[in-house]
Amino acid sequence: MKLRLSMRVNGNAVELEIEPHRTLLEVLRNDLGLAGVREGCSTGDCGACTVLVNGKPLVSCLMLAPDAEGASIVTIEGLAKDGKLDPMQEAFVAKGAIQCGFCTPGMILAAKTEDIPEGNLCRCTGYTKIQEAIREERRTTRPQA
């Protein structure tokens, strides 16, 4: 039996029919084609599938899609506006915080709210340049803080 699911994804209203055993990750990747939501482990341990749900970073692999009913979701595809990178994306690019890039979308989204994104694994960078990028973003976007 399929369920109706309504949510906002990257600012757009989305309505679709889903099987209830689908995760938010599957719906975003497979039904909505948002491939930037990366599946690294599917058990909530790596953070690669992180998306913002009502402003909070969550692992979409452990969220049952029906639980996203009415939610506002931001994926990495929704961060850049009018072709201009978000300051966090810019900082990651400028500071060399990206190597293979598989963890990057989840890391950037988690870093929007977390100074130390401890729920996101990176195997390439050793995190040093990720920390630099987050500090740089905080410095440029919150100069008073």
Binding site: G36, A80, L85, Q89, F92, G101, T104
Partner: peptide, 8 residues
């Protein structure tokens, strides 16, 4: 390729 990776 950093911008492509940063935007998914």
């Amino acid at each position: 390729d950093a911008a492509d990776k940063a935007t998914g």
